[in-house]
Design a protein around this nucleic acid. Structure first.
Length: 185
DNA sequence: AGCGGGATTTTCT
DNA sequence: GAAAATCCCGCTT
């Protein structure tokens, strides 16, 4: 059942409720004629009322996508060499997004490992910049509509759901006690 | 296995 | 000019 009009309405909610719903969803990437698929297993929530968020101080050129419609991809560049990707959540003008921190490979693991310069297994995609490198995501996909090729978000099948833990987020200096990192137990 | 530091450039003050 | 939603290497236990 492949279509080009996936319903992503489940992204239209408050970010800390939507974020855990993204666990178990699938990212499907078409890259150089290959199909790469991975299941989302770790995420973090960010929104405009949150001092740790890029959107905290309002809309800028960089964060414009975060203030756009839900279901689009927000890609940012950091530490001079890494891309990280987020799924925009909440709706027009909200300024919220969910960082994809880790995925488990489902298809095209060999290609993902090659994209990661041979680092596979446990190290394949257990970090936000590693996810982007494995899936070949960079600035060119900033603002991309995730209902469309070459990068789709596929809602989680009911049987993919598992128990979820919430913890503090990684690598931030503000709002360190907010439990907005979600992962499977 | 765990820790410390360097890489490297965009973004905002 | 400083910090950054990170990663990897090399050195020490």
């Amino acid at each position: 059942m492949i279509n080009n009009d996936t319903n992503l309405d489940f992204l239209n909610g408050v970010v800390d409720e939507v974020a855990p719903r993204l666990l178990g969803c699938i990212l499907e990437r078409e890259l150089d004629g290959r199909l790469l698929r991975g299941r989302i297993i770790e995420v973090e929530a960010y929104d405009q009322s949150d001092a740790a968020s890029h959107s905290y101080k309002g809309k800028t050129e960089r964060t414009a996508v975060m203030f756009g419609p839900a279901g689009h991809l927000y890609v940012y560049f950091t530490y001079g060499m890494h891309y990280c990707c987020n799924i925009v959540v909440g709706g027009e003008g909200i300024g919220a997004a969910v960082l994809i921190r880790a995925i488990d490979p489902l298809d095209g693991e060999d290609s993902m490992t090659a994209n990661r310069n041979g680092r596979g297994g446990k190290e394949l995609a257990n970090g936000p910049a590693k996810v982007c490198q494995a899936l070949g995501i960079d600035k060119r996909l900033n603002g991309h509509d995730l209902r469309k090729s070459p990068l789709r978000l596929i809602p989680a099948a009911p049987e993919a759901k598992r128990r979820i833990t919430a913890t503090p987020r990684i690598g931030i200096s503000q709002a360190k006690d907010t439990l907005w990192r979600f992962l499977y137990e």
